[in-house]
Every structure is written in C-alpha cells, then in structure tokens.
Design a protein around this nucleic acid. Structure first.
Lengths: 335, 335
DNA sequence: TTGTAAGCGTTATCAC
DNA sequence: GTGATAACGCTTACAA
C-alpha cells in the first residue's frame, strides 16, 4: 500500500475550511460565514444543515482569516519583567480575567528587567498585530514602538511621557506605615529603601507623616533582595543603639530584616516592629508574620486590561491610581 | 479645518503594508517580501532601498498575512493552573527562553485548577491556530481537543493516555529525603502528604528507602496549604512522643510545619529535622532556611518547549523524566 | 535579479 | 435569504 510521501518539510495538515463546509452543505461560503457570525439572517433549516456539516468536519472559523480581513487579532500583548515574581502573576491574573470576558487572549513576553529585551519583547508581540498591550514596570525611558491606533498601557510608577498608566500611590503607603508606628507609640524609626522612584515615593510619604509628628528617622539602603535587607538592618543596628520600628520598601528585604533582628536576639514586635511593602504571599509565611502595605496587584492588572480595552474600542481612557492598604500581622502587634 | 469623521465604530487605522513599501521603493511586493525572507536572492542595492523605506514607514511584515499563507501561526498555547504560583512561573520562563530562539510566542491561558476552565482555555488558544501547546498540571482526565497535526505536551505527573510528557521522578525525591535523614542518624520519622498522585509517589520512594533500613514512619495528611501543614504536624506531635524528622510533600506545608514546631518550642534542626519539596523561592526565606527536594522547574519548562517544537517540526519526540535534587539548608543541618 | 499572479481563509458589499 | 466577488497582507511558483 502506498505511503504518504514523507518530505523533510512540515506536512502541513490543514483542517477543513469554509469552502469544504459550504460545498458539502450545498450553500455558498458566504452563507457559512453568516451562520457563524450573524446567524439571525440565515434560514433555520439552512443554518442547521451548515452547523451539522461543520460539526461533522470539526470545522471552526480560523481566526487567522477572520482577523486578516477585520484588521484585528483579538490579542493583547503583555510584557512582564519576570513571570516568576508572584506579584506580577497576580497582575496577569487580573488582566486575564478581564480579557476572558471579551474573548481576547494574552500574548506573553518577558523583559527580564532590561530595556533591550523589553524592546525585543515589544517587537515580538507587535509582529502578531496585537490590538493593544500592557507593560508591567517598564525599563526603557523612551516610549515603546506602536503602530498607529495601537497603545501601550503601563503598570508602572509615574514616568514622564507615558499617557496611559495604572499605578499605586506609593507615598500613601509610606504614610500608612508611619501612622501605624506612631499609633503603636514607636519613636525610634528607620526606613530601608532601594533604588528607584517607587522607593523614594514611599520614603517621601513616610518622612512627611513623621515630620508632622516632629520625628526624624534613620535611613539605610538595599536593593530589594533578602540579603540586602539583612545588611541594611545590621548597619542600622550597629550605628543606632535605639531602634524600635523599621519600615522596609519590599517584603523580600523585610524577610532579611527579620532575620537580622532574630540573629541579634531582638524580639519582633516586642523590641522592634517591622512593616514591609507589597503584601506578597511571602509576608504571611514569615515568622513572625509580616505586617505589610498591600499593593492590590490583581485589581491593578484588571484596571490595566479595562483601560486597554477602552483604547482598543476607540474610546477615551484615563490613567488610574490605586491606594495601598495596611495589612496588620504579627510583626507590629501582639501575636 | 475639517475633522476626521468620528464614527462610533473602531477607526481601524492600518499601518503601512507591503504594497506601500513596494511602491515607495519602486519595486514589486514580491521583492519586498523576498527582502524580509530570503534576502540573499535580492541585489544589495535594491535590498538597501527597500530596507530604508521599510524603516521610514515603520513597516514590519504582519504575521497575520504570513501565517495565513504558510498555515502556521508561530504561536504556542500555554495552559497553566495559576500564573501566580512561582514554580509555574519558572516553568514558563524556561518555555519562553526556548521559544524565543525560534521566533515563537506564547499564548497564555489559565485553567484555575479546574477541568472545565482548562477546556475553555484550550479552546481559546486553539482558536488562534496555535502550532503547538503545553499544559502544566492538567486537570482533566480526558485528552484535550486538538486539530490534526497539533499536539499537547504535558508537564504533569504520569497520566494514562498522555503521549508527550515532561515529569519529575517523585519517588526519587522521596528516596533522597529518606537517605538524608538516615545519614543524619534520625530514627523517628514522619511523612506529611497531600491528595494526589505526586504525593503518593513521593511517599512511596520515602517508604521504600526506610524499609530497606528496617525503619517505619508515621503519616499525616494535609492539602499543600500552610495551615494544613501546621495541623498535620500538631497531630503528629500529640500522638507520638518521639519525632526527630519530618518529610513534607510541599514547601508551603513545610512552612506550616516549622511554625508548629516553633510554637511547641522544638528546635529545628536540633530536635526535629525538616525537609520540604519543590525548593520554591520561599524555602530559602523561612527560618530556619528549609532543606528541600528541588524540582528543576525551569529546565522542565524548557524541555516541554523543545518537545513541542520537535512535534511542530514533524519530528518524533519522547517523554522525558527529570531527577530531583536535595538542596541542604539549615532545617536539616547545623545553621 | 525581478515581476506577475495565484492563492491562504475569512468577512463584507453588492446584487438578486 | 442567499450567492458572487472583492478585499485583507502576505508568500511563492513561474515567467521574464
């Protein structure tokens, strides 16, 4: 029995197309198309016949053809620094849920916290003619390329020249932390920051609230890593004999701070209270459980998706600012 | 001055196409196409002229048109239970890096740990005519739909009827844990498991190695959550007066176990040694840092992508099994 | 080396 | 209510 020629090239098995369905159900391809789009304008029995044939052949309209003629892809490009960072995962979840309701899908690419690969990622998703795009924590200081009519929505701290943004009120987060420490009667405070605008805004809010209460605070700097948190805390503890509260710009660094305190035998929150930032899943797993400033990542992702959908629909859209929230846990209160 | 008519319908601004580039550089569209595909067959100066025009117009070949004629989409569908789970994030990272080198992109959809939404997710990515697909931890016990010539690759524990799999040797992980405890001279052991095949395989390996040493072990059951880890450990500690080592089926549960031990004033690893599973980022942040059985998530993702690419290329491909690795940290050894 | 022209799978605009 | 047919943006024989 004759074998199919086995070329070295991909066999390219195309599944049944609109033509075949049309031929087998004795109608024109236009009618088949109507059945799948504007069913109302087709006589019920014709419709039924077509639907049966389609089912028999396992036919589904190809979005390739459809999108080509419509000039849309029903795709949203998504650029994330790093997929394995849980906070970004939550944002992606929010985006996906919003898109799902409108039948759109997500094209994902990573920027690896680097401006060059961010650009590469953008070009990659652009090639697929995405209708819109969301970029989380952009690395580049110039606008990403975009064909006319397509827009990028940014989930990033404020950045000049980015028209559509979803961001967190970082200064408000700093104020929340300061107020909590004051409420607890702590007077010997410190802030452990990191490079970048987000950290400086958090610090700004923190400082503002403290100065209103006539208090100063000590400063140290890390890089958001656990180790840098430990080192920053050690620095602080060597220099200042009294310290009863530390506000840390990220939960991961806060984990390092807790470790440093533990190593020195300082009780948390008894002797030192600690507040982190982000409220990542990690926060509630540390010992003691970490009080943190919650960043509503899921909601921010959802808002970015809504914003993008409005733009795709040709509507106007405005940037949106989210407010953080204090989540009290053991590291500031009685366990 | 006349305003553009502002209809309620999407304006549909198409960006420059191959025709425009061809016209402006005084060649046929075929030549433009060749420049972007098979550059060698075009005279250098013609090529240069086209390239310049293309750059000026910001032209990039649309994959819609290209894929339509080629019958491929350069898209890989990816179905993940939950994007915010870091281990899955690592797998996605591995997949993306492999795809990136071959110019393919990832279409992401979530299954929310649920068979129905997994099917929905599959249909969603299938509509975009993906060339291949990867499913992480499938929920359904029937095969996902696939057009002829398209295949799903699974990153899942063994599951009957799934031809292309990437999986971890879970039993080997259990053996590693058992051997480590034996090496440390621990004799009063326990296993805290969870529902599902993965946990039972881990337990099987653990038990096998222990029985060779003539040892028995206690058992408790959780559900991979932190709280269930605490409860399981409490159960164990109430019933057995002596316990000097606990192997836990997941790092999150292990965090709960550490908490339970701490609450009872039991020193880790002094009185009780603990080994977790997965080696999630969390493991090295707990106090004490958790020894864990590492699951090479990134490599597993990369392998799944390679496998899928082979299938897309029409080649044969085989399932692959990865070996876990013991990562020693404070919870089993001296700090 | 380049151009012409036939498709790829659809939708949408006309007629009928 | 239905059928021709012209796009959509591109690749690829085949001719020149």
């Amino acid at each position: 029995m004759p074998e199919t020629t086995h070329s070295s090239v991909l066999p390219l098995v195309r599944s049944a197309g609109i033509r075949e369905v049309a031929r087998l159900s004795g109608v024109s391809i236009a009618t088949v198309s109507r059945v799948f789009n504007d069913a109302a304008s087709v006589r019920p029995d014709t419709q039924q016949r077509v639907l049966e044939q389609a089912a028999a052949l396992g036919y589904e309209p190809s979005s390739l053809g459809r999108n080509l003629v419509r000039g849309r892809s029903e795709l949203l490009g998504l650029i994330v620094p790093n997929v394995s960072f849980p906070l970004y995962g939550q944002m992606i979840g929010g985006i996906e849920d919003v898109l799902g309701h409108r039948g759109m899908s997500m094209l994902l690419a990573s920027s690896h916290d680097d401006a060059v690969s961010e650009l590469t990622a953008a070009q990659k998703v652009l090639r697929h003619a995405v209708d819109g795009g969301v970029v989380i924590n952009t690395q580049s200081d110039v606008a990403l390329p975009a064909p006319r009519g397509m827009n990028w929505v940014h989930i990033s701290p404020e950045h000049s020249g980015l028209p559509y943004r979803v961001e967190l009120d970082n200064a408000a987060g700093g104020r929340l932390a300061a107020r909590e420490f004051l409420r607890l009667g702590r007077r010997h405070l410190a802030y452990i920051g990191a490079p970048g605008r987000e950290s400086s805004e958090r610090q700004h809010g923190f400082a503002g609230e403290l100065s209103r209460a006539g208090l100063d605070y000590r400063r140290a700097q890390g890089d958001y890593s656990e180790l840098s948190g430990t080192q920053a805390a050690d620095d602080l503890l060597e220099k200042s004999s009294v310290l009863d509260a530390v506000f840390v710009a990220g939960d991961l660094m806060a984990a390092g701070v807790l470790r440093a305190l533990h190593m020195r035998g300082l009780r948390v929150p008894g002797e030192v209270a600690v507040i982190g930032f982000d409220d990542a899943a990690l926060a509630s797993l540390l010992y003691p459980r970490l009080t943190s400033i919650r960043q509503p990542a899921y909601a921010m992702g959802a808002a970015a998706a809504e914003l993008s959908l409005r733009l795709i629909g040709g509507h106007s859209a405005e940037s949106v600012v989210f407010s953080p929230e204090l989540v009290r846990r053991e590291s500031t209160g009685p366990p």
